[in-house]
Design a protein around this nucleic acid. Structure first.
Lengths: 226, 226
DNA sequence: AATGTAAGGATTGTTGAACGATTTGATAAG
DNA sequence: CTTATCAAATCGTTCAACAATCCTTACATT
């Protein structure tokens, strides 16, 4: 039995939350649409439409908007409505700066933790298997999971949250790209990075990661500057 | 004339926002009370009281609650109300983990930027002057400004925001302490850190910062475990 | 005395309608 | 082509109401 409200790997106690509020439920639906490409960047989210479709009141919907705006997935323009966020090239660079910081620090302090390494191996294997079978969307999912796990080497719940948000923002751009050419170039390097971490060669891992992220940033910048 | 909506040092365009929504206004008032100790951790924020005092509707107040909850200054317990966040020792450690990551990365990539160094000098001088005159609250303000400036060496608006939030959370604990014994031990080390950055000795700066943060963490942990 | 149960009141969660304020878009005038 | 004007649409905010949940108190049980 997994007790809600119990302590976890970080030693913090989570607030009891078996069921969530209606606003969080609505936010979850919209979040999924945004991060999975159902709602494209720049789209306007009209209150009337969504209150009718989700069958929630305007106030509740606006609370959901507020949640997603703080996650930077939506953009709230006063008196003008809510839009799916459009990432500028500067945003992409900023996000990659965040990734360099988080993942760089993670790799540097990596210490061959068996549990973390097992999880990382699983993510890399899943990605490779999905790639072999041509399931490129699943490759993307596993790739993001791999990097989220890298971030978690920092051993901080807040850093995990920052990384999750950064990756969620990046998904806004991912949908403008072919998932194959987005993830394929980086698959072997995930494996290589894992190997370096397994043998404790953190400095080499850090260097590999740096070039990795620089290249990924260039790829995305090219995609979002037409 | 500083045009709102114009581009800034980060090259991003800020959304036009001359006036803010009522919810943000209410959130600003509550944020100030929380970060400046007017509302102590654990306090309950009843809707009836605050709607009467702030003269805003319940819905607007609840939106303000939502904003501050996402900043981790308030804690929203479903059906039970909103409380000023109480930091556990695990929270404090987690926040210091974030600071180690952010400030560590910042110091490592520091490159003697004249503008940044000028700002840092200003913060250190202000802190020293305030200390000499016994204005320990102002010392605290300048100290936090110094570390926020350190974080900004990362050159990322998002990292700046993360740091601002981490420091805001720490203020929740600061109010349980004597501001003098909280900041006095670290004043000379701020100066020392600045000197190292001015001469480009980043590795030494990084080491100094590490011990600095470890000690500060211990100090706060001792304060919040009675 | 300690524990468990059952009203009842108090507070929160959510809704729907209302109205002023702002933006938008079309139209007309210069 | 630009500017001005005006109506429609949409947003921002408030209010009142009711449902759902929690908390307190009182009472009963062991």
């Amino acid at each position: 039995m997994s007790e809600p409200g119990s302590s976890d790997a970080y030693g913090e106690t989570r607030p009891f939350r078996v069921r969530s509020s209606t606003a969080e439920w609505a936010a979850a639906i919209l979040r999924q649409r945004v991060t999975q490409g159902g709602l494209l960047p720049g789209s306007r989210l009209a209150e009337d439409e969504l209150t009718a479709e989700l069958e929630v009141s305007r106030n509740t919907l606006r609370e959901a908007f507020s949640l997603l705006s703080q996650e930077r997935l939506l953009e709230h323009r006063l008196n003008r409505g809510v839009y799916v966020r459009v990432l500028s090239p500067a945003d992409v660079s900023d996000i990659y700066q965040v990734r360099r910081m988080i993942e760089g620090a993670a790799v540097r302090r990596s210490y061959k933790d068996p549990i973390s390494l097992t999880a990382l191996r699983g993510a890399v294997s899943d990605a490779e298997k999905a790639a072999a079978e041509g399931r490129w969307l699943d490759v993307g999912t596993a790739d993001l999971r791999f990097h989220q796990l890298i971030a978690s080497l920092n051993g901080s719940r807040r850093v995990d949250a920052m990384m999750a948000q950064a990756l969620a923002e990046l998904r806004l751009v991912f949908h403008a790209m072919n998932p194959r050419e987005l993830h394929a170039p980086f698959l072997p390097r995930n494996r290589e990075l894992l190997t370096l971490l397994e043998s404790g060669r953190n400095a080499e891992a850090e260097a590999l990661l740096a070039t990795y992220l620089d290249e990924a940033e260039r790829l995305l910048l090219a995609a979002c500057t037409p």
